[in-house]
Structure formats: C-alpha cells, structure tokens
Design a protein around this nucleic acid. Structure first.
Length: 585
DNA sequence: GCCGTTTTCGGCCCGACTGTTTTCAGTCG
C-alpha cells in the first residue's frame, strides 16, 4: 500500500498563504496574491489529497488552481520545496509576516517599516515604536505609534482562537445585555459564530436599533470591556479582558436583514453574492441594495429578502463558505440538511462504571429528556486505566445493571450495551473478539500513540476497521481544539476503508473535538459512508451538546440519511443486528 | 493568477472607521 508521506493539503495551503502575504508586502498586483489566497482556501476545504489528484493529473479541477499554481503544487509535492518561494523570501524577509498579526497593521505599513526603517521583526517594531522612531514616517503620527504598541500587547494577550462553545457563552451574555437596551428591537450573533465554525477568532454581534448613538455609547462604556478599539455610528470594536475581540454593528430595523447577512459572512460567500448582484445591476452592502441605473435603494428587513432579491432561495449560515452553495442554490439543489430535531439516538456515552459522572439510569433519563429514543452506554475498556476502564468481568456485570435500568425505563428509551474499546499502539484491541461479540455495539477509538507516523498509524486503524465486530470509529483523528492536532492519518485510505467495511465514522459532538471535521464529513457523505453524531457524554448535561455535532454535519452538507443517529430506532437496531449477524460468520 | 449563460482577454466587491491628512490611504470584516 502506498502512503502519502508528502505535504498534505493543509501544508500546501499554508505555503500559498505565505506566498500571498509576501507578495502583498512586496506590492504585487492585487489579483495575483488574491489568487494564491483563494487557492489556499480551497485546498483547506478539499477532502481529497492533492497528492492523489496530482497522480491523476487532476490538480486544475481544484477551484482557483490554474496552470501556474498546479505547477507549484507539483513541485512542492515532488521536492518539498518551491524555488519561486525561496526567491521571494530572498526579496522579502519572511519575518515581516508576523507584523500582519498586529491589528490595523497591514501589508502597506509592513512594507513601509521595512523599506524606510529597516524593521523586519515584531521585536524590532516594538522597540522602534517605544523609541518614538515610527512617528516620523510618512502617514504615521503619535497616535499610530500608540495604536501599534497596543496592538502588539493585544497579540500577546490573545493566544489562540476560541472554542465555538466558549464564544457562544460570551456572545449570549452580551446579546442578553443588548436586548435590554432601549431602542434595540433585535440582536443576534453573526460572523463565524453564526456559521458554527469549530473555532472562533472574533465575536460579531448585530442589532436592529432605533437609537444607535445611545446604544453605541452604552456599549463602549459597558463594564467588562477592556478597551475600545474603534467606535463610529454603525460599528464599534472592543477588546475584552482575555484578549477577545468583539464587534457590534447597528442598523435601523428596516436594514437589519442586510446587516445580518453581511456580517454573517463568510467573506468569500459575500464576494460571490456581490458579484451576482453586479450582474443584475445592483450594488450590495450591509446597508441594502442600490440599483445602479436609478440609485434606488432596496432595503431588506429580513435576511431572506437579500437572497430573494438575487433570485436565490435562502441559504443557511452553516453553508456560507463559498464551497458551492451559491451554485447549488441557483440550481435548486441545496441539500435537506440534518437538524437537531432529527437526532433520535446517542451511541457514545460514559457512566460511573468508568469515568462518567452519573449512573446508567441518570444518563438514560437525561438522554430521554433531550428526545433520544436510544442510548448506548459505551464505557472505557481495561487498558485505559486513567479512565477506570472495565475489565471483562466488570463488563459482564454491567450488562445486568443496564438490564435493570431498562426495566425501570420501560420502552421510553432503548438502552444498548457497548464499549469504547481502546486501540493499542500495535493495533490490538482491549477485548478479544468473543467479548466484542457479546456487545450490542462496539466503538473503537484511538487515545494513545497518536503521534505515530502516517505509515504506522494508518494501518493500525485500518486493521481495526476491518474487524467485523467494530461498528463505529470514535473521534477519528483525536484532535483537541483549539490546539492539539489530530493523528496524521492518510484519509484517502481511511475513507476508502470505511466505504468497503461499512463501518460508521463518528462525528463527535464535544466542542473540543468536532471530529470528523466538516471537510472529511462532507467527503464521507459523498462517498456514501455512514456517520454517527454522538456526544461522548461523561455527564448527564452533555447530551445538550449534540447540537454541535449537528452543526458539523450541516456544514458538511449532510442529510438525516447519512447519520445513523438520525434514523428511526427500528432502522438503527436493524443495522446493528445485521452487522452483528455478519460478524458471526 | 484565474476564469467565462455578458468575456479565451479583460475583467475580478463594498462601506465604515481611523489617522493622517486639506482629499485620502490603509485596514477591516
């Protein structure tokens, strides 16, 4: 079997972003570096490996990749280097990219500091600003200098992107505050938060408001705001104490739909919409449409009207990533996306038999309260000592406990006994096949030796997928958001194996996992692979997190048919019974 | 550098806000 050891899509994308930044600082033609950035973005949302596409001579099928970029991808895959980039880095010091992290500091100023003051690093910039050496440069004054110093401090405060769940918590508190302000008729979170991206950079809030000046003043002065970065009539940008950036946008109610649409993004989605508007002789902004021939305004109080004016059906925020949703909308081919109300089952949960906080009965009652009709108790297995994993003896004793709980619950919710079986570093599993055969459902998960090289960890997982007793692979990559990367699996091979074996892949709903991610979940859906949205609940309150798993599935364009935990309990149990039957043969 | 139900060549999005400016460039989302 051939493993891809070469640069993956993500590394390729990083390389092209690097090129784009340096070209922009260098002062290249706008559309050149934009082309590199677009190619980078599309590589990130590409689930097939560029390596495989290259072998089939299909690189130019990637949107935004033409002859020139395809050649560069090929060179990078073949040699791991790019002469073009090396020459560029001779011309433009690569450390200048760090300057772009500073708010309000873009390529033009970076170039100015470099060319006129010899500054090439963030440290040199800070020293120069402290020494008052920037204010003499063209277009720079004392205020700019202060702003840059503040910006450098903000960069140091803000370590990483936030978890989606963290951002939602912060946003909801501020929305509650906003909705109490006089003149505010509606307030919503927008931006990547509303699109349910797995991690969030800044928080964007929008409000329909008849008294903007007062609301803006109150917002800027509200307790809990570290400093105001910028403030105008329609927009205010602040920093919270933990380095979080937050923007508030205001428009009168009759323009609220346009505002909400605009701030929800994504940027690329909006660019496509504005191109579409132009072709209809319209100019589109957060204030509404303007008919270019007459100057007449078209106001949209509701977001649906923005899309309707462009002749499109409504596109939900989760799809707005310029990944084909506008073309699909034009063709009337938007998918019937899965919703939280579709979720009938949870096939991954832990009780106090291993490292869960609650009893089997408490877990079942909590799952039932969230509308689940089936719940699998899947405690950890023996070797995961830290999680109080079950020995075979305790596993068998637990079956009795589950039966007792089932007797209490009646037919209000169906309990299944499963296990989250540990995959050893050598690919072996914690329970022998005859024990696995006793279980209603088997999840196999990687927890240890996640850093094995691709050519080791991929076959390690493959062996497990081919075990006929295994029904679901739990949190495939093992990533932990926002910082720990997942295992270096060869996903082309893993997805093919899932298709062959019929094993379902979990979409783990825990906000620190969201694993499968949306890119591979979408590809899996296209390949006909089944997925299972599970909360991995270790506490009865965690069942509420199913909506995060649903958000991944929605961003992956998935429908209820793709998701076994959205099937009727009868269909799900039938699927399990069929697999167990086949495993016996 | 990419791309085509306006184009294989000539296009490629829009407004708010800031700081430095006497009319605008840079940055951001």
């Amino acid at each position: 079997m051939l493993y891809n050891f070469r640069m993956d899509n993500y590394e390729l994308a990083e390389t092209f972003d690097r090129i784009a930044d340096l070209m922009e600082i260098k002062g290249e033609v706008v559309y050149k570096f934009l082309a590199y950035r677009r190619a980078a973005e599309n590589l990130r949302s590409l689930a097939e490996s560029a390596q495989a596409m290259r072998e089939q001579n299909r690189l130019q099928e990637i949107p935004g990749v033409g002859k020139a970029i395809a050649e560069k991808i090929t060179e990078l895959l073949d040699t791991g280097k790019l002469e073009f980039l090396e020459r560029l880095e001779q011309e433009v010091p690569p450390t200048l990219r760090d300057l772009l992290q500073v708010p309000d500091l873009g390529p033009k100023k970076a170039a100015l500091f470099w060319k006129q003051a010899g500054i090439t690093t963030l440290g040199e910039l800070e020293a120069a600003a402290q020494g008052g050496q920037l204010r003499g440069l063209p277009g720079m004054g004392e205020k700019s200098e202060t702003r840059i110093l503040e910006g450098i401090q903000a960069v140091k405060r803000r370590s990483t992107r936030m978890l989606l769940s963290t951002a939602r918590g912060v946003a909801n508190r501020w929305l509650a505050w906003l909705r109490e302000q006089p003149g505010v008729e509606r307030a919503e979170a927008a931006g990547s938060l509303r699109r349910w991206k797995a991690t969030i950079g800044d928080i964007d809030l929008v409000a329909a408001c008849t008294r903007p000046a007062e609301v803006m003043a109150a917002f800027a002065a509200a307790p809990g705001i570290l400093r105001v970065v910028g403030q105008g009539e329609n927009k205010c940008s602040v920093e919270l104490p933990d380095g979080i950036r937050m923007q508030l946008w205001l428009q009168p109610p009759e323009r609220f739909g346009s505002l909400l649409q605009f701030v929800s993004g994504s940027k690329d989605h909006n660019v496509r919409l504005r191109e579409l508007a132009q072709r209809k002789g319209l100019s589109l902004s957060e204030r509404g449409f303007i008919e270019e021939s007459t100057g007449r305004e078209i106001l949209c109080a509701r977001e649906e009207e923005v899309y309707a004016t462009l002749g499109l059906p409504y596109i939900v925020p989760e799809l707005r990533e310029d990944r084909g949703e506008i073309q699909a909308a034009q063709a009337g081919r938007l998918p019937r996306l899965i919703e939280i109300a579709d979720i009938t089952a949870d096939l991954h949960s832990h009780s106090d038999w291993s490292d869960g906080a609650n009893t089997i009965l408490q877990m079942a009652e909590a799952a039932r309260a969230q509308g689940r009709k089936a719940l699998a108790i899947t405690d950890h297995t023996g070797s995961l000592g830290i999680a109080n994993g079950l020995t075979v003896e305790r596993l068998r004793a637990q079956r009795k406990a589950i039966d007792e709980a089932q007797a209490v619950l009646g037919d209000s919710i169906r309990l299944l006994q499963g296990a989250e079986v540990e995959i050893h570093a050598d690919g072996g599993m914690d329970y022998p096949d005859e024990v696995l055969a006793e279980l209603d459902i088997v999840i196999a998960s990687l927890h240890v030796s996640l850093r094995q090289p691709r050519e080791v960890i991929t076959p390690r997982l493959l062996g497990v997928m081919r075990n006929p007793h295994v029904d679901i692979i739990g949190h495939l990559s093992g990533r932990l958001l926002p910082n720990r990367e997942g295992a270096d699996l060869d996903m082309d091979i893993v997805l093919s194996a899932a298709r062959e074996t019929g094993v379902a892949l979990e979409i783990n709903a825990n906000p620190t996992r969201l694993d499968l991610d949306e890119v591979y979940a979408r590809r899996a859906g296209e390949m006909g692979i089944l997925m299972s949205i599970n909360t991995d609940a270790h506490d009865k309150t965690w069942f509420e997190q199913a909506e995060y798993g649903v958000s991944v599935a929605r961003r992956a364009w998935l429908s209820p048919e793709n998701i076994i935990t959205a099937w009727s309990p009868e269909k799900l149990l039938g699927w399990l019974a069929e697999r167990n039957e086949r495993a016996k043969k």
